[in-house]
Design a protein around this nucleic acid. Structure first.
Lengths: 367, 367
DNA sequence: CTGAAAGCGCTAACAC
DNA sequence: GTGTTAGCGCTTTCAG
């Protein structure tokens, strides 16, 4: 099999390196193709050799050190460019103990809130010269732990995380060798800055709106009751009812991971809800589907509203009233807080709280 | 004058050669505090010291080499565990010239198709012991190029990519030091395996369905005409019309990035369409919004169908007829093809073609 | 100003 | 079997 010109050149110029590879082949450490793909990257040494100077000098020239002859510097830069030298970030990481990478762990990338937030994180991080690597916990504690470990091993410079649904222990987030910023689903037991929205106020506004439409039996849906968001949104719900002098019917508070059944049961109970308030995006589609299946009309029979960042909410049948979050900004702020910590410019363990946006649409307009 | 080191990845608008230059000039001194977070992780050396043996012995013991006294091995393992030793993947990458990381570049994570596909990639990759790092091109060529460069520098073991909307040159994908697998939006000029769906057949089926509903003036919407998917889906459209002996009206073929206006203009033309067929997910929501604004009823005035993997399609008003793709499997297969190449077990430059699924819903049912 | 040398953590060829 | 040594690419003392 004829090798491409480039690879042939590589073999003839650097025979020792090739020999080394061959040895690996024999040892079975590398298989054939994994070697074929790797090109001989030019290193600082190659430049030094060509210029007949020490690698350290080249390094200095390239890094713009003060202690260097401008002439040499120029020369080095020229050759570096000629040889298309690119620094090896791995070697750098090893030496400097940092990677210029920040890790993000979210429950599900497919969740509109998460996807949009990541956009904001990337935006800020890239501007600051950091890569962003994204992991999904798929709402599973074990996966989350595993991801944190992986990331730590890779010597990421920092971590941004929104907790999985069923994360109830937090040891994996303590004593980490890198700073952590939490957003959305946070845990008070863990120190460090965080970015959240005013979940309580968001829910309060949403529920108040439903009350203004004449709803009196408002059911609230959430999944894991231990999530910070669930708790605060539930509080907002309670507050709104209290503000209207309406007693809370605990039967209308659904906290279950078997949501589909739970919703159905709601309508078999003694008090049939006249409104559904969901506190998680995942519950939005589910609620609508269940109501549809039960043959209930929205909003005539049941008004519907809740937290969701689905960009198609206005196209639903009927258009869905939602509480949106400033996703992009949440991401940006989280990245900012993290990088401030990484680079030591952090003021303290700040908590950033942003506001939600209530988009009223027909699913909650009784008339 | 020197910029902080963290800014260096972002000088993209200036010529590449110049950027290379700058890149080193500005690599400033590393902030002390950023290292403060780092704990001095225990290394293979620490274990060796404690056990009064050579690091290489420890290495062998830990890697389960054959040439080692079972007793020593056990001892080493015990101490390793005691000291909570974790291997440093960076050092490994530097030595072995591979990272056990595969890179994924998609246009937008927020796109349902992309998010779901990534799920499949992760699933397979993780099972094979690879990490997946995700990048977004945000449909921009420059960003795509930049991502590829970044990934290459990081010595990723392989790349999975779906091209950006406006990528029309492909130099950045040629001669890469790692294998590449393309999916969805591919380019024939680039060698290597790929995973696609039968776009042509998918469009054919969709359009045929619209024809069966009595539609005769079916408009087709796409964005960049040079995308592989656009082309094949358009071909399916033409084929379906041809199969029914219906002449193609070129005015009904919209290929524009100003889609919103373009759709509107369609309805000002001499031939008013009685159906809209969109060939990209992004166009789905847009089409529905424009039609709504124009006061057109779906499907009575205009039937609507097209490619989309939006999981809420059934909840739209009206429920949206879609051509879905086997997203999870696409991801799995792409990862499989890539890892086969990385590990040298690839059979050849395979092309995997999967089938689409037509979900007929009310948006296209004329009666 | 520049070169030589050490070392980041790890593996592997080569002794003994 | 195990120790010694070299080296992946780069930065950084420490001498000149």
């Amino acid at each position: 099999m004829p090798l491409p010109a480039r690879e042939r050149a590589f073999i003839t110029t650097i025979p020792e390196s090739f020999a080394l590879n061959i040895l690996h082949l024999i040892a079975g450490k590398f298989n054939k193709s994994s070697v074929e793909h790797r090109k001989n990257a030019v290193t600082i040494k190659d430049i030094a050799q060509q210029l007949k100077m020490a690698p350290s000098t080249v390094s200095r020239a390239l890094r713009g050190s003060r202690d260097i002859n401008p002439a040499t510097r120029l020369l080095v830069q020229q050759v570096a460019e000629e040889l298309r030298y690119t620094p090896n970030p791995i070697a750098l990481s090893l030496k400097e103990k940092r990677s210029k990478i920040i890790g993000v762990i979210v429950p599900e990338i497919a969740n509109n809130f998460c996807a949009a937030t990541i956009g904001g994180i990337e935006d800020y991080a890239y501007r600051k010269g950091y890569h962003v690597v994204i992991f999904q916990s798929h709402e599973e504690y074990e996966r989350e732990v595993q991801n944190v470990r992986l990331l730590t091993l890779r010597r990421i410079d920092g971590l941004i995380i929104s907790l999985a649904n069923n994360t109830r222990q937090f040891g994996h987030l303590e004593g980490l060798p890198a700073p952590v910023v939490m957003f959305d689903r946070v845990h008070d037991g863990i120190a460090g800055p965080r970015v959240v929205v005013d979940d309580c106020a968001g829910a309060f506004n949403g529920v108040t709106h439903l009350l203004s439409q004449g709803c009196r039996n408002i059911a609230i849906l959430s999944m894991a009751p231990w999530l910070s968001t669930s708790q605060k949104r539930l509080q907002g719900y309670r507050d709104a009812l209290a503000a209207h002098g309406i007693p809370v019917n605990e039967d209308l508070i659904v906290q279950s991971c078997e949501t589909e059944q739970a919703i159905q049961q709601l309508f078999d109970g003694t008090v049939r809800p006249d409104a559904l308030f969901f506190s998680m995006e995942r519950l939005a589609l589910m609620s609508l589907r269940v109501l549809k299946r039960l043959g209930l009309r929205i909003p005539e029979d049941v008004a519907v509203a809740g937290f969701s960042d689905n960009p198609a909410s206005d196209l639903f049948s009927p258009a869905l009233t939602t509480i949106r979050q400033p996703t992009f900004e949440i991401g940006q702020r989280a990245a900012e807080l993290l990088i401030d910590q990484i680079e030591g410019t952090a003021v303290g363990a700040e908590t950033v709280q942003l506001s939600t946006i209530l988009d009223i649409r027909s699913s909650s307009l009784k008339k």
